[in-house]
Design a protein around this nucleic acid. Structure first.
Lengths: 322, 322
DNA sequence: GTTGAAATCGATAACGCTTTCAAATGATGC
DNA sequence: GCATCATTTGAAAGCGTTATCGATTTCAAC
């Protein structure tokens, strides 16, 4: 059923019905209710393509994933939060999977040119992220989940990675640990750099020196956690504590500790910093202090909120931390 | 830039350009190439809303997630595979998150009525799944990932859950185990029922009887794996082997075994059946036999393939296993 | 009663594409 | 050369909305 037919059923013009449905003020309350009622009854929903063509807005936002492998549990949680918020405004989420960074940019270009989305969300930023310049130049609005260095102003939403790791490190140091290992994220990623700085800051504040051999970078996988931890344990001077950057690397690190015949909690203390995983219980880290959870789901909700405002034209006031 | 402007630049009519770009045969090869070249050069991409309006096709498929919590690693892998395939046809994936089954159906109604998607993908089927009837009646094409009981014909894509668990169970039984525990998925889910049948079939073939107290159902979480396993270990007659339905429940089960002071591999054998998780190494299950991986990513690819055909009108021949 | 402003409503022109049908061009056979 | 047919191009009519005006109704105030 289309507007024409639907409005004829109501004995009203298309214009009035359209206005009633879109919440414009110049329609009598009584009329509006009658229209809404009929829409429910007949199950009328305006054709989204037609709306898009007439308004120039797609009513959707885009997210591009690279390799599909970025599609981990962090992402899942994030999407859940984001989707919940966007649902309220009737905005859909368009997903694209892509193989390279080059292809990612091409996708943005396509999405923008074909007007499939009104904005995109960027994730997994690197320290120098060319997407900012690209999208700015393209004129496609975006919000970055995370942060990067940029001369251009841009919207972003980030958590305090620096503070979280600084706090965790400080906690261990205050317990008397002087040899603390750190399994950090991939080198080049902004959050990893920030965490690194937090790690160092905690040391500096206490007059401790950082042993560079106790620092490791890599993906947040079980595998990488194992490899890095195993490496630390082979050092002449083993660490007495370790901070894992995610639940996954913590699992791997635990395995390495076990394999080495050591006991977690007694021989080595472990702190896992991560966002909430509903399907992995923190109890899995039994002899462990798990700190600083910053629900990534909440971040999704918040970005949804920002998106809403940006699409409404309220384009300012978001160039800062949350 | 729109078609009008773009075609003027080329000195051709909109008709010809449109045809050239959409691959219609009645356009000279030379002309087609000239158009393609110019499209690249100027970055012209047809407005998707306009195409949708003119053709009646949305160029997108929809997937609805409930609660956002269904959005686990299985899903991630699946989406990766699916997206890769759809990309080729320029079809996008539309995600919706929703809170209840009722809301899910409403979403399908909206997506269909507003012509936002051409088809949807159903996942996590229950034994009696009302979505089949609903969507059939709605006239919205769909493919179910998994299977359900239904009088109506429907497209689906499933793996051999029965066979996988039967094989795993048989393997353990042939090693001499007679008390095998089974941590299965949620009761009511089709795949869980199929797996249950496989478990029983393996016993039956060998003249073994199934001890119902060694069967457990629940979500595939670490937590649930722990709880069920801990329960099994409190029985007078403990199991000597256990099959975990997923990596997550296996992790929980391992924890329960450790907590009980037992040693995996010596006191208890464990088989984890699951699809490939790129970010959890199977090594984490050290003393474990991990069998039967059926890449869920491949399932995504396959469904993308089916979708392609269905949208092309080749609507038959898919009512069977793959 | 009039009148003028405010509140409602409607006719119609976009929006950017596809597609039908007609026209033009090119090739072929005699 | 010319009729015939195949090949290639174009003009114009939709597709289902929104948005811009203009028209009508309502109603309080004179």
């Amino acid at each position: 059923m289309n507007l024409k037919e639907f409005s004829r059923k109501l004995g009203l013009s298309q214009t009035t019905v359209s206005r009633a449905l879109s919440g414009y003020p110049e329609v009598k309350t009584e009329t509006r209710e009658r229209v809404a009622e009929a829409a429910r009854k007949y199950g009328y929903h305006p054709n989204r393509s037609a709306i898009g063509l007439a308004t120039g807005r797609a009513g959707a936002i885009g997210i591009v994933f690279r390799g599909g492998s970025e599609f981990g549990p962090h992402t899942s949680e994030f999407m859940g939060g984001l989707g919940t918020r966007l649902e309220e405004d009737g905005i859909d989420m368009l997903l694209s999977t892509v193989v390279s960074r080059e292809a990612e940019l091409q996708t943005y270009r396509r999405l923008a040119a074909s007007k499939r989305v009104d904005a995109v969300i960027l994730h997994s930023p690197t320290v120098e992220d060319d997407r900012i310049a690209f999208l700015t130049q393209l004129g496609l609005p975006f919000i970055m989940h995370g942060r990067t260095k940029s001369d251009l102003p841009y919207h972003f939403m980030d958590i305090d990675n620096f503070g979280a790791i600084k706090q965790a490190t400080g906690y261990l140091a205050d317990l008397g640990h002087s040899r603390i290992a750190f399994i950090n994220g991939q080198k080049g990623r902004t959050f990893a750099e920030h965490r690194d700085q937090g790690f160092r800051a905690a040391h500096m504040e206490r007059g401790l020196t950082v042993d560079e051999t106790l620092l490791g970078n890599g993906e947040f996988t079980d595998e990488m956690g194992f490899r890095l931890m195993a490496g630390f344990l082979e050092l002449k001077e083993q660490p007495t504590a370790v901070i894992a950057g995610s639940m996954m690397s913590a699992l791997g690190a635990m395995r390495a500790v076990r394999t080495a015949g050591l006991k977690l909690g007694d021989d080595i203390s472990l702190i896992a910093h991560d966002d909430v995983f509903p399907y992995i219980s923190a109890d899995n880290m039994v002899p462990t202090v798990s700190t600083t959870r910053s629900s990534i789901r909440a971040a999704g909700l918040r970005i949804g909120e920002m998106l809403h405002d940006i699409m409404d034209g309220k384009d300012d006031g978001y160039f800062n931390d949350v």
